[in-house]
Design a protein around this nucleic acid. Structure first.
Length: 221
DNA sequence: GCGACAG
DNA sequence: ATCTTGTCGC
């Protein structure tokens, strides 16, 4: 593949065309050959009033969920945030951080949506397609679609629907916290995405991979 | 035409 | 996303 965005000409209209083309390559089946050994957590933050994009990558052992390596990459911010085009702004930094990890993750969790996107190519799905890695999107807010009211207990979940199809799940990951929006990115099924997030929750609203990356990207750690 | 709109 | 301490509620 020629780069993260193919032959994108830089315009918003063309970015949407590129998304439609890449969305056709998304694979929504669990085809992981074996039990994942390494998990990856990815998120982006900003410095200098947005002038610098700060990408964080965390590698965790799948069995213990303990971090074994972290990477932070800082690059000049290339474009403003445009709803629906988040990956064009954040993906380059995230992939750079991925390439610096000592091991390639077997399954990746990205802060943002997977296929729960107008053209079914949120940043987690885009990340998966260009890297070829199984990926899952974990977002804190809805971009498109809607869902029924959610129960108050941790673990309760309902489908996130858009144009008559399920694009993800609204998940109460922790009591008294707003639900998470979970959606498959690439090489993961709808059920597989939910199961993977449930398995990596450890008492916080965010699953460990994304929670640790979040702390690094937002300067807190 | 009028809102909504990941991070 | 980010600017930012204490504070209300469970």
């Amino acid at each position: 593949m020629s780069g993260l965005f193919g032959d994108w000409d830089g315009s918003a209209a063309d970015a949407r065309r590129v998304q439609q083309r890449l969305a056709a390559e998304v694979m929504l089946r669990d085809d992981a050959p074996e039990a994942p050994r390494w998990l990856g957590g990815f998120d982006v933050g900003f410095e200098d009033a947005g002038a610098i994009t700060r990408a964080a990558a965390v590698l965790l052992a799948a069995d213990t969920l303990q971090p074994v390596a972290t990477e932070v990459v800082r690059v000049p911010t290339s474009m403003p945030y445009v709803p629906g085009l988040l990956s064009f702004r954040e993906l380059p930094a995230l992939v750079a951080a991925l390439e610096r990890l000592p091991h390639t993750p077997d399954l990746v969790f990205v802060d943002g949506h997977g296929i729960a996107h107008p053209r079914r190519l949120g940043i987690a799905a885009h990340f998966g397609v260009v890297t070829g890695l199984p990926s899952i999107g974990v977002a804190k807010n809805v971009l498109c679609g809607r869902h029924d009211p959610l129960g108050a207990l941790a673990g309760e979940h309902v489908p996130l629907l858009h144009r008559g199809e399920q694009i993800g799940w609204a998940l109460r990951s922790k009591v008294r916290c707003n639900p998470l929006l979970v959606s498959p990115g690439h090489r993961v099924s709808m059920q597989g995405a939910l199961d993977a997030v449930l398995r990596t929750l450890r008492g916080y609203r965010l699953p460990e991979p994304t929670r640790l990356a979040d702390r690094l990207a937002s300067r807190r750690d």
